[in-house]
Amino acid sequence: MALIELKDVTKIFTMGDEDIRALDHVDLKIQEGEFISIIGPSGCGKSTLLSLLGLLDQPTTGVYKLDGQSVESIKDDQKAMLRNQKIGFVFQTFHLLPRASALRNVEMPLVYSANYSVQHTGAKMKDMALEALKKVSLTDRANHKPNELSGGQRQRVAIARALVNHPKILLADEPTGNLDSKSGNEILDIFQLLNKSGVTVLLITHDPKIADRARRKVLMLDGKIVPEK
């Protein structure tokens, strides 16, 4: 059974009088443990695809099954739970809370975990957050605020936050887009390492060199997936 399965998914945005077909009859299957990159020019619908996969948005038509479960019928609260427990996000602009330390940023998903599974004690939350920071080699920066960190370090904090709840899948939207090539490579190294440890990684980029780091490449054009060879 595929971890992610899209069948004939279409997403239409209405802009004024115009309907924009961001996703046009997309079929996609991703197996557990894959490292897949989705590449395409800007406006091809790849970010929309990631929003759908991450349950931040819903398809206009079509079926999306996550871990065998069709998501169109599930309620908003349950989507929040799935985002919390199974999905980790990494964004191009990091999306860290500027006032909170790296540690507090990483702890954030754990605060909401109490809704769904166990309520961790403060000490346990801190341990888990430090463990996640260790995976991205940032333990020594735990008490720094985002503005005291470099771009690469910020993205590593964001990855630690995505990892802290041991998700099945990591969704990364242009994670190296705002970084220099050296920091970008470090981030990609981390993704590769994570993938080896069993996390499914989906990476969105417009840069073929970055897409090459993935084991599977999917090309998107005008809201459609170009058939893989």
């Binding site: 739970m81 427990q85 954030m108 998903p109």
Partner: peptide
């Protein structure tokens, strides 16, 4: 961000 990481 909070909603993305699991806030209802």
């Amino acid at each position: 961000i909070r909603r993305a990481v699991g806030a209802r």
